[in-house]
Structures are given as C-alpha cells and as structure tokens.
Amino acid sequence: MFIGLDMASAGATRWAEPRQEKSAPEGQEGDLEALVQRVNAPDGGLAADREERRSLQQSAEDYRQRLSLSGFGEVATEPQIEGLEAATSKDPERSARWLRGILAQSDPHARAQLANVGLVIAQALADDREDLCVEALATLRGLRTPVHIVIEPERIPLPDWALIRAARASGPAALLAAEYEVARNDARLAELARFTDALGAGAWLDGWTNAALADPHPARVARALTVTALRPATSHVAALEKDRGTGFLGEVAAHARATAGRRCWARHWLEIACGSTDPVAFWAAGTLAARVADLRFFADWRDLRDTPLVLRFGAALGEELRQVAVKRERERQRTLFGLKAPDDAFWAALRGSV
C-alpha cells in the first residue's frame, strides 16, 4: 500500500499498485490482446483505467482494514512529519532516544514497522545528532516497510526524501553522493536529480556535479553529464556543449545533449498547447509534447496557466503525458549514461574486485 502526503495541504491519499510478477514475460500474448481491446474501446480505454484505479484504491483500503484488525492499524497511518519535526527541534535529546530505541529493535518486523517514523526523526536530527542521523539513514532506508510513504506532488519515496532533506549536514550529504555514484541506470539518476531539485537541494547537486566534472575518471564525468541532462533545469550548459571527441565521453555527451533537448522541446510544445484557443492546435501541440516528454514535464505542467482548453482537456492530456513519461522512465532502467546498462553479473564482479 502507498500513502501520498501533500505537504502543502497536509492531505493524504492511499492507493495500491499491482504486484509485478517476474515470472510473467513482458509482451505476453494475452496481455497484448487485452491492451489492444482497451485501446480500441469507444472511450479509448478511459473506463477501464478508471475501474483499475478504483480497484487498486479498494485494495489499499482492504489492506488497511486487515492491518487494523490484526492490531497494526498505526502502521497504515501517515507519519506526522511537521509534528515530529517540531518535537525534534524542541527536544532533540528526547527524539534521539526515540530513534535509538527504533534502531535497537532486534525484531526486524518491528523495526520495519517503525522505519517511516524513524526516517522523519533522523532527517530532523541532521544538525544536532549528525552521527545518529547517518546511522539511522544507513539502517532504515533499506528496510521493506508494510506501507510505502511518498511525498506529493513528485511522489518522492520517504527514504529518498529523508536523505535529501538531511543532506544539509556533511554526513548525510556523503550518503546522498554515494547514491548518485552507485546508481546502476539512468532511471535512478533521473529520479534522484528530480527529487533533489524538487526538495530545494539544487545547490548541493551543483557542487556534486562540479566536482564530478573535474574528476579525471571518465566514468564520473559521464555520470555528471547524464545527471546534468536529466535535471529539470541546469546551469551546466557549457559542460554539455563541450566537444569531448568521438570516444566514450563523446558518445555520452551526445546522449546527454539529446536528453536535455527533449525537456526543452516538451516545455515548448506544452506552452504552445496551453496558450492555444483552438482545440485542434491544443491537441496537435500536446501530441508533439508527448513524443518527447519524460517525468520532468510535471514541473512544467504545474507552472502553466489555466485556460479554457486546459480546464477542458488538461486532465486527458496530462494522463497521456504521464503514461508516456512513465514508459520512458522504464526504458531508462535499461540504460546507463544513455548506453546499454551493464547486467547484474558485471556489478557482482565489480563488487568482488573492490
């Protein structure tokens, strides 16, 4: 089950997501037939999509009720982030004792149930108890919790939110830098960059990028170029435009320039669509935006003004853009620096050689 927290309105939304079965091969004939039937439906599959969302929301509610009947109802409640932060600021020593108690839990299930609360307290302690904050982030971020908390509107998973918020201190900042360094595909780099900028840590990411670009190791430069291209906006245009020859870095830079360009084109077409007064022109520009959009479009979409056509068709266009963007992020799971990502055997061998 997922809980989405809107920090602006203090509202919460609950939903479930379908379990991904690894044994079911992608592109199975039955799945393809169902997809074709949905797309060819008179409404373009909108009714089926609404029913699927309703079913997933009901699944989340059923799960919450089962937790409550089992005596674990508190697990399905959202952590009171503002309250926990205020309590930690008022009495950091007491909050530190709470956090040490969570970390001292010997039962892994109990620790997992308390992990979300522990992460909120940990990031709030970054200034006063940096060592404890680092220990908690390193321990709790990898736990599989019964309920997944995401921060709206970017849907930032709570473990990433806590790490980025805590990066104002040097210890957590080193953990965040390590996340960038060990990311195995472009999808992870893209979400890290998007989350970091969304949470106001763009200056930290600028510093990390500058250091990586100046590194003599080509892999670190490639990582910095890729992150630069995947950010919603960048101040490192010169790094992307620099001629890096025809070798490895030249190929990475070419992919990075194309990625950065797609974001510019997506915003360009969205601005034309939202400024249009003709429905045909609105959809023509929206369709062109969908050809190049990725999940960065959400930030642009929120910035664009409401017009009669946006109010009339915005929900439908936004959903089409979201589906295309999600598909593009899945494709990025197979690439690193714009090239084919190494397989698990490569990473296992690399760990063994260190």
Rank of each mutant, 00 (worst) to 15 (best):
S9K: 07
W15V: 11
A16V: 01
A16M: 09
A24M: 15
P25G: 05
Q28W: 12
V36T: 00
Q37H: 07
R38H: 02
R38M: 05
A41R: 12
L46R: 12
A47M: 09
A48L: 08
R53M: 04
S59W: 05
A60C: 04
Q65D: 13
R66E: 08
Q80H: 12
Q80G: 07
I81W: 05
E82K: 13
L84W: 08
L84A: 01
T88I: 08
S89I: 10
P92L: 04
E93P: 02
R94F: 01
R100P: 01
R100V: 06
G101W: 00
I102G: 10
A104I: 01
S106W: 06
S106R: 14
A110N: 12
R111K: 12
N116A: 14
I121F: 13
A124Y: 14
D128H: 14
C133R: 05
V134A: 10
L137D: 08
A138K: 09
A138F: 03
T139L: 13
L140S: 06
G142Y: 00
P146I: 03
V147Y: 08
H148E: 15
R155F: 15
L163P: 11
I164F: 14
R165M: 14
A166Y: 09
R168Q: 11
A169G: 08
L176P: 03
A177N: 09
E179K: 13
E181V: 15
E181Q: 15
E181Y: 09
A183K: 02
N185F: 06
A201Y: 04
A201G: 07
G207K: 10
N210A: 15
P216L: 09
T226F: 01
V227L: 08
P232M: 14
P232S: 07
A233I: 01
T234L: 05
T234F: 03
S235D: 12
V237G: 15
A238R: 11
E241H: 08
K242G: 04
R244F: 07
F248D: 07
G250S: 11
G250Q: 07
H255N: 07
A256Q: 00
A260T: 13
A260P: 02
R262N: 15
R263T: 14
W265F: 07
G275H: 01
T277A: 05
D278L: 11
D278G: 12
W283T: 05
A284R: 14
G286P: 00
G286E: 01
L288M: 15
F298L: 12
W301M: 02
W301T: 01
R302I: 01
L304Q: 00
G318H: 04
A325Q: 01
R330K: 11
E331W: 00
L339Y: 00
P342W: 02
F346R: 02
R351L: 11
S353H: 06
